[in-house]
Design a protein around this nucleic acid. Structure first.
Length: 495
DNA sequence: TGAAATGTTGGGGCG
DNA sequence: ACGCCCCAACATTTC
């Protein structure tokens, strides 16, 4: 048996394989990485920070923070297996071929993406690399099933979630996740290749160090953090998931969304872990089924993105193009963004978002509905804010969920389905714990008034130390009037 | 994964 | 004892 150093030497004489990591920042269940490591040559692991290619949407601030730490963790994990992660900045369509040429690469592998601009870059690249004699191959990894694998009987794509989910559930479970490669033998960095950058050069962290404080406290970006999060959720959250998921004060959801967004964990790994938990403990069946349904909402949103690459801009239902959105005033936009609308549940959610880069899903629906329906502001304005502020903002889920709330999406809530933020609060945050956590100036109010302080008596307000209009705002719109206005606007847009 | 308005039913107070 | 009314509770319809 040749000593390790001899094997390394022989391996380094072979042409290297490039693994282009994008939204799959993990070593386990990464078929592109495994394929590269299974070859006879060394491996060039690369990440390209690309906001230069046509149609690429710049990352939001919270996503940049997460990405920074995720790349940091990924580089460390790769180095622990004798590999190296090289970072680049610029248009991927130029960097990858230039690198392949300089390195004399024999192959290039990556995990598929589903946005319009991303597909355009990847498919052009595949052709270009093949023409240059480089074996380019893409893999499934971001989804359980490719959009073209879940089809209606007429071959078309689904526009209704329940039908999509039924079809997806009828497919065989995806293959078992593949293990992380034992070693990722680094190829020497080739002379004449595009210039590498340091992580710090990408400038992904906010200028004011303190503004990321809430993010740091709440999460651990990276593959190990994702794995721990999943294990903790299965251990303590899965059994009661079906009900706990609606209570924003509880730790009742998985909080895997930012890990999934950057591919630190794959949906295949999640499903495999759920199945295993099901087999081990019968009591989690209900929760795991519900959770699988949420994973399938994510799949559905990517399915829609694949069929509607312009969905971050264009209404999926064209009749909404006539919707008479109001020109938002700076004041009401600031009130919504800053959590000062006077509706405690909305304000708690918007403050959680700003402070932590996350918002509980139940509250996302209410806060989004408030912007679109109570303030009659174009959903795209809210979508952009969430894109900037959410660590988990991704090109499929963020636009599709906003369209769902606004009523213009696929299988959307009917436009007239208008959330009452008071009733939603009383139903899902009955104890007011969530509101008190994020809107502490209302903390002294009794449960009865915590979601509608403007109806409390002068006396109750005084005892709680609340002065409406001073320590906490009065509602910026009246619910009943705003509801009537929204319904009227819809009727107008349909006429 | 709505909320509000409207309709229906039945118990109980009351003359 | 009976009819009338009120209204809570639930069901259905509408937005």
């Amino acid at each position: 048996m040749a000593p390790g150093s001899e094997m390394t030497r022989l391996r380094r004489e072979q042409p290297p394989a490039i693994v282009w990591l994008r939204d799959d920042l993990r070593l386990a269940d990464n078929e592109a990485l495994s394929a590269a490591c299974a070859g006879s040559g060394p491996v060039l692991c690369i990440y390209i920070f690309d906001e230069a290619s046509a149609g690429f949407r710049p990352y939001g601030g919270a996503s940049r923070w997460w990405l920074h730490h995720s790349l940091e963790a990924l580089a460390r994990d790769i180095e622990a297996r004798a590999g190296r992660l090289d970072l680049f900045r610029g248009p991927a369509g130029e960097i990858v071929p230039a690198l392949a040429r300089a390195a004399g690469a024999g192959a290039a592998f990556w995990t598929r993406r589903y946005g319009g601009a991303e597909i355009a870059v990847d498919s052009a690249l595949k052709t270009q690399l093949a023409d240059a004699g480089v074996k380019a191959r893409s893999f499934k990894g971001q989804l359980l099933h490719e959009p073209w694998e879940v089809r209606k009987s007429d071959g078309g794509g689904f526009m209704v979630y329940s039908a999509f989910a039924r079809a997806a559930r009828a497919l065989p479970d995806p293959v078992e996740p593949v293990a992380a490669p034992a070693a990722i033998p680094a190829a020497p960095y080739p002379a004449g290749a595009p210039a590498r950058v340091n992580l710090e050069d990408l400038d992904l962290l906010p200028a004011k160090p303190d503004s990321a404080g809430g993010l740091k406290a709440a999460s651990t970006p990276g593959e190990a953090g994702a794995r721990n999060r999943l294990a903790a959720f299965i251990e303590s959250g899965l059994e009661d998931y079906a009900t706990s998921r609606n209570d924003p004060a509880l730790d009742g959801v998985s909080r895997l969304s930012p890990h999934l967004r950057f591919g630190e964990i794959s949906p295949r790994q999640i499903v495999a872990a759920i199945r295993e938990a099901d087999a081990r403990n019968l009591k989690v069946a209900r929760g795991s089924d519900k959770f699988l349904g949420e994973i399938l909402w994510r799949e559905f949103n990517y399915h829609l993105l694949f069929g509607h690459p312009d969905a971050a801009r264009a209404n999926l239902q064209p009749r909404f193009d006539q919707m008479p959105w109001r020109d938002p005033s700076a004041h009401e936009l600031a009130a919504w963004r800053g959590g000062r609308t006077g509706y405690p549940l909305v304000d708690a959610g918007m403050r959680e978002l700003w402070a932590s880069g996350y918002m509980h899903n139940r509250v996302r629906m209410v806060a989004a509905s408030f912007l679109v329906k109570h303030l009659l502001i174009d959903w795209r304005i809210g979508e952009q804010w969430f894109w900037d502020a959410l660590c988990d903002a991704d090109p499929a889920n963020n636009p599709m969920n906003w369209q769902w709330v606004a009523g213009c999406g696929a299988d959307a809530a009917p436009y007239f389905r208008i959330f009452n933020p008071v009733l939603q609060g009383e139903k899902f945050d009955a104890s007011g714990e969530y509101v008190r956590r994020w809107v502490p100036e209302l903390g002294g109010l009794p449960d009865k008034w915590i979601h509608k302080p403007w109806l409390a008596s002068e006396n109750a307000l005084r005892e709680a130390g609340v002065s409406l209009g001073q320590t906490y705002p009065k509602p910026i719109v009246d619910h009943a009037k705003a509801r009537a206005r929204a319904l009227e606007a819809l009727a107008k847009s349909e006429s």
